[in-house]
């Protein structure tokens, strides 16, 4: 297996810029009703067709409640707002589609940033904002810092579903990393 190309972030480093991207997106949305839940997920990273346990893809997921997911504001207006916002920031829109079903219209707006972060606004039964790091070197779980959620979710609350990464409890009282205050490098913080 070839050595994968160097990633801009490790897994532990990737959460901060990804959460920053989420916070920036939320700031661009008017009359924001608040998300219902935030979660961190991972997907296998394959190299030459085989899953490589030394690498992982992280996906930070923010989702609206089912009630808010049914509003025109969230299903349509936010797609337009985010498209304008992301284009304005120089992100590359790689997917922008609408799928007409018999009972609802689903939408996908996907933007790619130069640093490798991908933002996906998905309008489906639920509506959510999913932000992905791509393939990054796996970190020890102890190296992963808690980053408070954006979009109205209470840190460590019912909607903050990141407890898997903090088996000793979500450290909401510690000095949290401010997602809007991203330094040039996260290296010193790890």
């Amino acid at each position: 297996m070839d050595t994968p190309p160097a990633s801009e972030y490790t897994q532990a480093e990737a959460y901060a810029p990804v959460e920053t991207a989420a916070a920036e997106a939320v700031a661009a949305l008017h009359d924001f009703p608040g998300f219902e839940q935030r979660s961190w997920a991972e997907m296998p990273c394959s190299r030459r067709g085989v899953d490589d346990p030394d690498y992982t893809n992280i996906e930070v997921r923010y989702r609206f409640s089912i009630a808010d997911s049914q509003t025109d504001l969230v299903r349509q207006q936010y797609v337009d707002s985010l498209r304008e916002h992301w284009i304005g920031k120089g992100y590359r829109i790689v997917t922008d589609d609408a799928v007409e079903g018999t009972t609802r219209t689903d939408r996908n707006l996907v933007a790619h940033r130069a640093d490798g972060v991908t933002l996906w606004y998905n309008v489906s039964g639920y509506v959510g904002l999913y932000i992905q790091s791509g393939c990054v070197p796996t970190s020890d779980i102890a190296d992963i810092q808690y980053i408070p959620p954006t979009g109205g979710i209470r840190p460590g609350g019912k909607g903050d579903k990141v407890e898997e990464y903090f088996p000793g409890g979500i450290p909401v009282t510690q000095q949290a990393v401010n997602p809007f205050d991203s330094p040039e490098s996260f290296e010193d913080q790890l």
């Binding site: 190309p5 996907v110 130069a114 991908t118 992905q132």
Partner: peptide, 15 residues
């Protein structure tokens, strides 16, 4: 999921 090396997330397949 996407990144610089693989710039497009496979949203189509997943959905």
């Amino acid at each position: 999921t996407g990144n610089e090396e693989h710039p497009v997330a496979n949203t189509t397949s997943r959905t």
